[in-house]
Design a binder for these strands. Structure first.
Lengths: 197, 197, 197, 197
DNA sequence: AATGAATGAGCGTTCATTCAT
DNA sequence: GATGAATGAACGCTCATTCAT
């Protein structure tokens, strides 16, 4: 019934990284968490860095495929945005360790040579999805034409990331997904009262 | 003419931290950058962690005082928000190393016992400022009453943080401050076209 | 058509040892070279050291038998010496890996408990053969009576070893055996010009 | 009264290398022998390999200068040869650890990238000294003209090396230097009886 | 007999921290 | 105060050896 060792170690590693941070985690801790010997880790990963590389390439692919699927499910750009954010929150809520590593380590990681590439791609991919949604929304007259697109992407990604962050650092016992709809409302309509603008 | 050693070391440290990340930086590197001996650092800081503790308590105080001042300069809540964000971007653009350490290390740092407190405080302080602005806006009828306040705080902090992030990891030669006004516009009015809502 | 596994492994090991040195070689490398699994090696050898033990006891026996045979083929002590050296160079030229391991590892090897004995025996056996030749030469009046026998043995063994060494560390593409005759001439007659002594 | 740490460590290392061989020696052993902490070694040497590199470049220079001096002291080529060998044996007898490392490790060492150069130079330098002596001897009519010079060099170096080797692996309590004169006699006059040639 | 995944002791090396000068 | 040589604990990683299949 056991998963294969590769994933067993990968998950243990992510768990330990989530707890201590990548640089503060030791191979011994990971091995212990995974229930294997230290040396065993090196049968599946080239070195400590490689664990993170593998994690990012594996999870990123998996998560972004699910994002894209969710976006493609509906036609309306506003629904697309809603689905994207809901899925984003859902995936991260579902795998808290992944969420922590994604949020907390990703800023550090570009210092690891082997990860430079993949990290910058994660943001880019996400922002591409968002970008397409916005552009479609503009074409359909549902979204403002006078948007600085780059900024909108930052706004959305940043907002979601911060919500996840807060959830992570709190006791994580409230429902993250339930924040999707109010967030989309905020993003679409802003915080100003209608007659005030 | 030299600054006192304390600040000399502190700035050297931030520079090194910005370059390599906290855990990847060594006391030797900092000492070299500061032009002092390794041991000298321990005359001014209890240990390596303490450098970061000092940095955060010092910078946080300084920066947030400046934020508060900027917010207090004007009366209109929308202007307050604009001033806050403009100042935020300005300060971080002005001290890139600080920006990098704030953005990149802060997620890691709560794993350092001595920093747990200060880090969570930084977010809290920032969100308090934002919260007060929003509440004043609501009182004055300038902002929607049906806002989930916590979410709005995340939205604003997250958006600004993401903009700064992108700036840091890019070649950094564009003007960060100029993004303040369009960002406030976005936050206030959202991305949906008016008649579409 | 394959040789039995024992010799297959033994030869692979010598090849790897020749390339990397004993301590720098790993069981994995040997297994790979031999085309067997790591574990298989332990079916034929007690441990890594044992591979060298087996090699030395096997090769030493084989080589020295051939030396003795060659020496016994002729009656004249000078011819015996010539035959010995010629055979020595021939055997080592023929099996370069063996030559390298013999020359390069033998000095290290007495640090391996199990090999202490065999190594000192190799030199001893060789010197015994030489000793007998010299003594016979002296009896027959062909060699000087005033020789310090121990020294003569060193002289001969050392000279041959050094010639082999040089050959090993060069590109090994010249003929080693052709050096036998001039070497015997040198050993017999010395380097001084006749009338000069 | 203490020598500086650099030489203290270097000598301790050579002592340990002599005892266990380079690859079987650990930094901990060396540190213990030198009476310093493990880390201290890395203040003076780049890494374990570097200890050997330093040793060879230091000792080789020192020893060969002394060889050349000794050779230059006298004019007669035969005396030169005698002086060279006597000095060689003397130096190696005087510093047994050096002798062991020179004899035993040198064959292994060309596998260490940083040492490839220096090792091949040692033999070359020695053989150059010998070569010059022989050539001078030939010019002066003291040595045979029909010598294969390369072979003579091997003969001499090999013979001396083997004598040292035997001394090292024996209980080492006999006088090495006293073998110089008989050895030179052997080299000059050979082992054949005069009337027999 | 043969495999090769798994082990874990042991190594080289780094680096925060101390302290004699 | 300032130094930087010295420390030694702790880490990442290797590899001889074992053993279930």
């Amino acid at each position: 019934m056991k998963k294969d060792k590769y994933h067993q170690i990968l998950e243990a590693a992510i768990c330990v990284f989530a707890r201590n941070g990548f640089f503060q985690s030791t191979i011994s801790q990971i091995a212990k968490e995974a229930g294997v010997a230290d040396g065993t880790i090196y049968l599946y990963f080239k070195n400590k860095d490689d664990i993170l590389v593998q994690f990012f390439s594996y999870k990123t692919k998996k998560v972004f495929t699910s994002f894209q699927e969710e976006v493609d499910k509906v036609g309306d750009p506003k629904d697309k945005l809603k689905n994207l954010i809901r899925r984003h929150l859902k995936e991260f809520q579902h795998d808290r360790n992944m969420a922590i590593v994604f949020q907390a380590e990703i800023k550090q990681i570009h210092k690891i040579e082997a990860l430079k590439q993949s990290v910058s791609n994660i943001s880019k991919m996400y922002k591409n999805i968002v970008g397409e949604i916005i552009e479609k929304g503009q074409e359909e007259g549902l979204m403002r034409k006078d948007l600085y697109l780059g900024l909108v992407k930052h706004l959305i990604l940043g907002a979601v990331a911060e919500v996840i962050n807060t959830w992570i650092f709190s006791s994580s016992d409230y429902d993250l997904v339930s924040m999707a709809d109010p967030m989309v409302d905020l993003l679409l309509n802003g915080i100003a009262s209608e007659h005030a603008v």
